[in-house]
């Protein structure tokens, strides 16, 4: 089980959280202007790296706030936790 550092509540067990997939996917500002390919890109295409991944979590059994993690998908090591809207930390931390 992961020990997840919620930016508001501190370290808590994984079972208190919900996963939200890839972070930093911006909703298109003008959806009507998108063709089908661009819309599919926004809806379905996702990074799936073997290594450091920026992902969203929600502290559903705690403060119920969304936040982001940088986590290594091979070692499961959590490199950083940061609030929604914050600039993601540099990813060059060795995993």
């Amino acid at each position: 089980m992961l020990l997840i550092p919620c930016p508001w509540c501190g370290p808590r067990d994984e079972i208190e959280f919900r996963y939200g997939g890839e972070a930093h996917i911006a909703r298109p500002t003008d959806p009507d202007a998108l063709d089908d390919r661009a819309w599919a890109e926004y809806l379905f295409m996702r990074a799936n790296p073997k290594g450091v991944f920026a992902e969203r979590w929600m502290h559903s059994a705690g403060c119920r706030c969304w936040f982001n993690l940088l986590r290594d998908t091979v070692s499961h090591r959590i490199l950083a936790a940061y609030r929604i809207g914050d600039t993601p930390p540099a990813r060059d931390t060795p995993s």
């Binding site: 089980m1 992961l2 994984e14 079972i15 799936n48 073997k50 991944f53 986590r71 998908t73 091979v74």
Partner: peptide
């Protein structure tokens, strides 16, 4: 398991 992973292990819960 809910999260993305390439490790061939999951969480005990």
């Amino acid at each position: 398991d809910a999260y993305n992973s390439y490790a061939q292990r999951g969480s005990f819960h």
